[in-house]
Each structure stands twice: as structure tokens, then as C-alpha cells.
């Protein structure tokens, strides 16, 4: 009885194996073949631009504060039109663990973990990416968001009260009820 059951099990296992023969390989012969990445894949962080083409990062330093490996370093500056921007932005990818905390912390949706992942080099020093290498020309995953449309600060070309959901500036000298 037990011998019969063993043969049936063996036959079933063999059938499972034989069934795969016609189905082709489930592995990908990377790097010759491109990988199909899931949409929420966390690859190398990049700095994106807003829909108007200006860089999104306002150098608030939250990404560097939240980074568990302290691999982000930046210096804030102010442009002539009073926009804040990072004068320098540096990520040391030999320390980055692709946890995505920076993306979560970013209030302007500037830093995003996109799909790039294969960028190995021979030297650690080649893994220190500067702003020029991080800033891309697109909006990344969020095509419509522009932080400065919602912020209360005035810029050149955007006066007080012109932000979204803002009323025009009040007269702070008026004593009328």
C-alpha cells in the first residue's frame, strides 16, 4: 500500500517538473536582457524638477536628517528670485541603503527613488554623487506638484496671496471692524 502511494507521489512530482518544459525560463539573463521593475521599486535617489522646470529641492535638510546612514549632505542657498535651493547636494552611494526614508521625508517631492540600480564602480570615490549627477530633467513619479504654489512665501513672479487657497494681502494698518 505504501509502495503504491510512493509511486503516485513520485509520478506527481515528475509531472510537475515535466509540465515546465514548454514554458521557457523564468530567470532573466541580466545584463543582456532588461529587467521589468515593479512600480514601487526603490532604486537610486534622484532630484526631480517641478512641472515648470525649476528644481524642486528647497534644501530643507529633512532628507539628510532622516537618513539612517548619514549619506546625504547639502548646503542651502537663496537664488536671486528668493527661491531656496541646494548650493551643493551630495549623496554617498557607498553608504546608501535605499531605504527610501528621504523620499518619505521630502516635503516638496524632490528626492525620489527611481529605477536606476546598477551603477557599480571600482572606487568608493566614484560613488559620491554631486548635484549635477543627481538632478534629472523630469518630474519623476509626481507630474503635477509644485511646492511653491502652496507655500506662503513670496517669490519674484509670485506675490503674497497668489498661492493656492490664499486670500489677497490684508491691510495691517486698518482699524475698521
Amino acid at each position: 500500500m505504501s509502495a503504491y502511494r510512493g509511486l503516485v507521489q513520485l509520478g506527481l512530482g515528475l509531472w510537475t517538473t515535466l509540465r515546465q518544459i514548454g514554458r521557457g525560463a523564468s530567470t532573466v539573463s541580466y545584463p543582456e536582457e532588461a529587467l521589468k521593475l515593479p512600480p514601487r521599486w526603490r532604486g537610486r535617489p534622484v532630484l526631480t524638477r517641478d512641472p515648470d522646470g525649476d528644481e524642486r529641492c528647497v534644501a530643507c535638510q529633512l532628507c539628510s536628517a532622516v537618513c539612517p546612514t548619514r549619506c546625504i549632505e547639502l548646503q542651502a542657498g537663496e537664488r536671486e528670485d528668493e527661491r531656496r535651493y541646494p548650493v551643493s547636494f551630495r549623496i554617498n552611494f557607498s553608504r546608501c541603503i535605499y531605504c527610501g526614508f528621504c523620499e518619505e521625508a521630502c516635503p516638496t517631492l524632490a528626492i525620489q527613488l527611481l529605477d536606476a540600480f546598477a551603477f557599480s564602480t571600482e572606487h568608493h570615490r566614484d560613488l559620491i554623487y554631486e548635484k549635477e549627477a543627481l538632478l534629472i530633467d523630469g518630474t519623476g513619479k509626481h507630474p503635477h506638484y509644485n511646492f511653491y504654489r502652496h507655500a506662503g512665501v513670496a517669490l519674484h513672479g509670485k506675490d503674497k496671496g497668489q498661492g493656492s487657497n490664499e486670500s489677497p494681502p490684508v491691510n495691517g494698518r486698518s482699524n475698521l471692524p
Partner: peptide
């Protein structure tokens, strides 16, 4: 909508953002 104010230039030492 949020109330907004115009800011003043208070010299080289202090920056004002009344909003």
C-alpha cells in the same frame, strides 16, 4: 483661504515673514 500679509524690510539683521 488663508489670510496673507505684505512683509516689511526691517534692515540687514532681521527678516520678517508676517504670514
Amino acid at each position: 483661504p488663508k489670510r496673507t500679509y505684505r512683509d516689511q524690510d526691517l534692515g540687514p539683521l532681521v527678516h520678517q515673514e508676517m504670514n
